[in-house]
């Protein structure tokens, strides 16, 4: 068997094709970087004008873009919204997933709740959008807190499904042992179950992070009345005001891409693993 496997060595042709194919991913990024560093006067009307490296690498565009888009405030809002959403998702959705997952095979009511929540996956934002704008405005939630609450609801179907599915891997005996020792259900959950769901926490965190960080629609309609923006929203506002200065625009795009790219480079394994894990378990 070993020998059979070894017979077909590295497929260099395919490797070459795949490396070449990376251009489809890297070219738009390369272009973004190049234009972001250029001076508007260097942007001539031919291909070289846009794609040749700048004569001198200047950070002026970035400084200007930061000022115009109020970058730090948008970044802070994005970090706040995504960060709190991730933490609360892991805490709250795991509890819901646990309670539902442990009871749904024995009790009909819990099974009903499971299907009720999971079916939320098929509700498009378009139908909730208009009523939600009214609802959040009425109760004073037309702000980042409101967006966080909505995310907690929007990601609940997927996350509850993932958590309750993962629970099958955790034997009931674990909880029973803790309960015989006199621990309450609440305490058992936090000391025994929650730590054991760690791989699923990573998956949920990654999927929720990718979804919330890049989301435009929810903050756009919910926070439209307030001064707050998120990174994607800042780009949208920027575009309507200063869309014609491409160098400034691309500096701004690049700025808003950098945080997630850094996150990706640092946690690439966890991110790809998390996405794959979500699909397999889901």
């Amino acid at each position: 068997m070993r020998r059979l496997k070894r017979k077909q060595g590295t497929n260099w042709f395919l490797t070459f094709v795949l490396i070449l194919g990376c251009l489809t991913v890297l070219f738009p990024l390369y272009m973004t970087v190049i234009i972001a560093f250029k001076n508007p006067s260097e942007m001539t009307n031919d291909v070289a004008g846009a794609l040749a490296p700048p004569s001198n690498w200047s950070f002026d565009n970035f400084a200007e873009a930061m000022k115009v888009t109020n970058f730090w405030s948008a970044l802070a809002n994005s970090l706040f919204i995504s960060g709190i959403t991730i933490v609360l998702s892991v805490l709250i959705h795991s509890i819901a997933g646990y309670v539902i997952g442990r009871n749904m095979r024995r009790k009909k009511g819990y099974k009903l709740v499971y299907f009720y929540i999971v079916s939320g996956m098929f509700v498009p934002f378009a139908i909730l959008m208009m009523p939600l704008v009214k609802e959040t405005a009425q109760i004073g939630l037309a702000n980042p807190i409101g967006v966080i609450l909505l995310y907690l609801v929007f990601y609940m179907p997927m996350n509850v499904m993932l958590y309750s599915g993962y629970l099958k891997n955790i034997p009931l005996a674990m909880e029973e042992a803790a309960e015989i020792d006199g621990a309450s259900t609440w305490k058992t959950y936090w000391t025994v179950i929650f730590p054991m769901m760690k791989p699923m926490h990573a998956t949920v965190a990654v999927l929720t992070a990718l979804g919330t960080w890049n989301d435009v629609m929810t903050p756009l309609v919910i926070m439209s009345g307030s001064e707050n923006t998120t990174l994607p929203l800042a780009q949208l506002n920027f575009q309507t005001q200063f869309g014609t200065n491409y160098n400034l625009a691309f500096a701004s795009y690049l700025l808003s891409l950098i945080p997630i790219l850094i996150f990706y480079v640092v946690c690439q394994k966890q991110i790809i693993g998390g996405v794959a894990n979500g699909a397999v378990k889901g």
Binding site: T15, I19, P28, M31, L210, N214, P232, Q239, Y246
Partner: peptide, 24 residues
């Protein structure tokens, strides 16, 4: 490495990707 590179489009926001392609 190749898997890592090919996954990049997924982590970028649709809005900004749209702006970049709009220029292209």
């Amino acid at each position: 490495t190749l898997r890592g590179i090919y996954f990049v489009p997924n982590i970028l926001g649709g809005l900004i990707v749209g702006y970049i392609f709009s220029f292209i």
